[in-house]
């Protein structure tokens, strides 16, 4: 059995990244596929995560499932050098996420982060467009904008009411929910929601996270409207810190290292 090492190496942690154990404080099922993990960290030392940044979580796979899984920060309940509570919104899609759904409050989980580069924000109206679990980092972005009294419209697309994320109801901004089958909100894709959002208002920036075809469509819409679009990419990761080159993908003119240079990129770097 491997023992927890968070204390031993704590003295050495000088960077802005926390590595060690967190404790599951709460797990909240929000739909048949989505759940929230609320994780407590003692002495995180690290700097407070920004919207778009992510952590890698050790799902307890031992030798059999070796890789950590990356998850964007969904919200910060509390953050100081001594104590932090953060939330991840997770969609159950395979072994690791199923395992995370089954851990119990009080259990320890290995976490590493905050990692990567998040979204850039501006003064003025923002358009946020998410597809599926892409709602996780954009929810954090919306909270961040609210705190700073910056306007936004949030277009969130889901497959159906079964996978819808109800937490959006607590947001104060203009939130428009779409489902593919019309079982909740309006019927349609997030990208068609974005079309009407573009017709109704002007924006200084567009932030998108979701399936790649959706992000690409939103990027193209933004480009024709002359607005910069930031997209949050997902690639399979091994190290999460820029060391293994496993998450690298082709961009428009160069390779993009998703874990280190991203996951948020300007759309113009990608397509």
């Amino acid at each position: 059995m491997k023992k927890s090492s968070s204390e031993r190496i704590e003295k050495r942690i000088t960077s802005s990244v926390y590595v060690g154990d967190g404790t599951l404080r709460n797990r909240i099922d929000v739909s048949s596929r989505y759940f929230i993990l609320e994780v407590e960290i003692k002495n995180p030392r690290a700097s407070c995560p920004l919207p778009g940044q992510f952590f890698t979580i050790e799902c307890g796979g031992g030798k059999e499932h070796l890789l950590r899984r990356p998850f964007a920060v969904h919200s910060i309940v509390e953050w100081s050098k001594e104590y932090a509570v953060i939330q991840f919104l997770v969609e159950e899609v395979g072994w690791g996420t199923r395992r995370l759904r089954n851990i119990m409050p009080g259990d320890k989980i290995g976490i590493l982060g905050p990692l990567g580069r998040g979204f850039k924000f501006f003064q003025g109206n923002h358009l946020l467009v998410s597809g599926g679990i892409g709602v996780a980092p954009l929810h954090f972005a919306a909270c961040y904008l609210e705190e700073r009294k910056i306007d936004y419209t949030f277009v969130a697309g889901f497959k159906s009411s079964r996978s819808c994320y109800s937490g959006l109801e607590k947001l104060e901004g203009n939130v428009l929910v779409f489902t593919d089958d019309g079982s909740a909100g309006k019927k349609g894709f997030a990208s068609s929601g974005a079309v009407s959002a573009f017709e109704q208002a002007e924006y200084v920036a567009v932030l998108a996270c979701g399936p790649e075809p959706m992000m690409r469509e939103v990027f193209q819409m933004s480009s024709s409207a002359g607005i910069a679009c930031q997209v949050s990419l997902a690639e399979r990761m091994a190290c999460g810190v820029g060391a293994c080159r496993g998450c690298v993908r082709r961009g428009k003119n160069r390779n993009l290292c998703v874990c280190k240079e991203g996951p948020v990129f300007d759309g113009t770097d990608v397509w």
């Binding site: 499932h65 690639e235 080159r245 690298v248 993908r249 082709r250």
Partner: peptide, 8 residues
């Protein structure tokens, strides 16, 4: 190589 580059 092109992505994906990692598979567990």
């Amino acid at each position: 190589h092109p992505e994906p580059r990692i598979w567990e």
